[in-house]
């Protein structure tokens, strides 16, 4: 708490984020935890120079995906990479209602609340968000994070230590239908369904609690 007083100009949204995550009472009971499956579409893979185009997120609670608790934020672009338009289809001046990066990040952090982040290759998405936070002189995210790739490695019987699974591969393994690939919310939903299926499987051999799940993230652990 002392840090708050040192940094004088902590924006309200960030202060809220830190307080909520640090003080959350929900993490002990799996049924009460709000997970948020996220996916970002970006202009490219360079943390320094590329930017987030869109963040999609949908909440999961008590093994249910709550469609009413979803968000899809499009971001106005200063930097633009023509090449990736082919993949995500988000043009610089498309029809979607767009926010500037600051508005978008604040909106996302507010939405995130004290939820646990679930993503596929979480490191990438979280890093992109952290870069955006950095430009607002805050960050990094303190939310707990899970990665469907690592949860799979924990469940899979064979030694897959070095293998990195793509979202497509996991969809194949877990029999998840792929709709709306390469839209942020579409991928977030696929990730959410994947997460439901994984936790159902995980539960068979392990008690389902957050600490154990977080421990599957050996690469993400700080």
């Amino acid at each position: 708490m002392i840090r708050f007083f040192k940094k004088k100009l902590v924006p309200e949204f960030w202060q809220n984020h830190l307080e909520k995550v640090r003080n959350s009472q929900k993490y002990s009971n799996f049924e009460n935890i709000r997970f948020v499956a996220i996916d970002t579409e970006t202009t490219g893979f360079d943390y320094e120079n590329d930017r987030i185009l869109c963040i999609g997120a949908v909440a999961i609670k008590n093994n249910k995906i709550l469609v009413s608790d979803a968000i899809e934020i499009y971001i106005k672009q200063a930097v633009f990479n023509k090449e990736t338009v082919k993949i995500h289809g988000i043009r610089k001046d498309g029809n979607e209602i767009k926010l500037n990066e600051e508005e978008a990040v604040i909106k996302f952090i507010d939405y995130l609340d004290d939820a646990v982040i679930v993503a596929h290759h979480t490191g990438f998405d979280v890093n992109m968000i952290n870069q955006a936070l950095k430009r607002l002189k805050v960050g990094p995210l303190e939310s707990k994070q899970l990665d469907t790739n690592y949860i799979h490695k924990k469940i899979a019987k064979t030694d897959t230590y070095k293998k990195i699974f793509s979202l497509e591969e996991l969809c194949e393994i877990y029999n998840v239908k792929m709709h709306d690939r390469h839209t942020a919310l579409g991928d977030a939903l696929i990730t959410a369904i994947l997460f439901l299926k994984q936790t159902a499987k995980y539960k068979k051999n392990n008690a389902l609690n957050l600490i154990d799940l977080v421990n599957t993230n050996y690469h993400l652990l700080k």
């Binding site: 999609g56 979803a70 899809e72 209602i97 709709h179 709306d180 579409g186």
Partner: peptide, 10 residues
């Protein structure tokens, strides 16, 4: 607001 998931469910 746009919501790809609910559009798909629709």
């Amino acid at each position: 607001m746009k919501n790809t998931i609910s559009e798909r469910i629709f």
